[in-house]
């Protein structure tokens, strides 16, 4: 049997205690890695905190990702762009600071700027506060071209009720339909702030199967795509252009 590695690629960091509780709970539920997102201001503090938790004196202090017993923790930065120009400025300044860069979507111009930027890893919730799913064929094609993953956040389903929940499910279906046609990366995440928002990978899979995704597609979204983003970002600094990278002979 193939051993699948499950990742939860969007946890919301708050303070050291709650972050540690989230990490421990995710580990208990069977995840192999998580990514915790902070705003730009909180990010440095979070890195210091992780260095203290891991308390490994042999590891260098400039680490951007951590490991506890094969459980990987990758802190990331979430950008809330006011307009496309502001967003691009933020991306340029923060890209080298972190391993994972996520853009909070919702506004159509922000969605487009994020999909067109190869430096962005994840576009989070393009459907947020919208009447449509926030993506069309043009944005989907750009997202696929630039390796920008589109996130479907479970906490949006969890925190909504009745008609709002059904609209979010409809947006999810629209995104899934576009994904099948244009083959951009899809990410299924929990968006958890507390341990009460986390679910086991099998529960998440069961829920998304109810929404119409196939088992292989779900596995791609919670296992393969996160692994690809992590690997891609480790090699990003060596990449000259897409398809060309500098190989260290040593």
């Amino acid at each position: 049997m193939i051993n699948v590695k499950y990742f939860d690629f969007h946890l919301k960091g708050k303070n050291p205690d709650s972050d540690l509780a989230l990490i421990n709970e995710a580990k208990r539920l069977g995840y192999h890695g998580i990514s915790i997102f902070y705003s730009n201001e909180q990010y440095n503090l979070a890195l210091e905190n992780f260095n203290k938790i891991i308390n490994d004196e042999t590891s260098p202090t400039h680490l951007k990702s951590f490991k506890i017993d094969e459980f990987s923790i990758t802190p990331g930065i979430i950008i809330q762009g006011k307009n496309p120009h502001h967003l691009q400025k933020q991306i340029r300044s923060l890209r080298n600071k972190t391993n994972i860069l996520m853009v909070d979507g919702g506004d159509l111009k922000i969605n487009r700027a994020a999909c067109e930027n190869v430096k962005v890893d994840i576009l989070s919730r393009p459907y947020y506060k919208r009447r449509d799913c926030g993506l069309n064929h043009v944005l989907s094609r750009e997202a696929a071209k630039n390796n920008v993953a589109i996130e479907l956040c479970f906490s949006d389903l969890l925190k909504s009720r009745n008609s709002l929940r059904s609209k979010i499910i409809a947006h999810f279906r629209d995104i899934i339909k576009l994904q099948r046609k244009f083959q951009f990366m899809l990410l299924i995440t929990s968006g958890a702030r507390t341990i009460y928002d986390l679910r086991t990978p099998q529960d998440i899979m069961a829920l998304y199967r109810c929404l119409g995704l196939k088992k292989e597609e779900i596995l791609r979204a919670i296992s393969d795509s996160p692994s690809f983003i992590l690997d891609y970002n480790q090699q990003r600094k060596n990449m000259v252009v897409d398809g060309v990278k500098i190989i260290d002979e040593k």
């Binding site: 969890l158 507390t194 341990i195 679910r199 086991t200 099998q202 529960d203 069961a206």
Partner: peptide, 24 residues
């Protein structure tokens, strides 16, 4: 129908205004 039940169970998140979580 196990998957459908599982999917519905994981959407439970509160009880009498307090937080609650179901894990299968």
């Amino acid at each position: 129908d196990e998957e459908k039940v599982r999917g519905a169970l994981c959407l439970i998140n509160s009880y009498k205004g307090k937080k609650l979580v179901f894990h299968t």
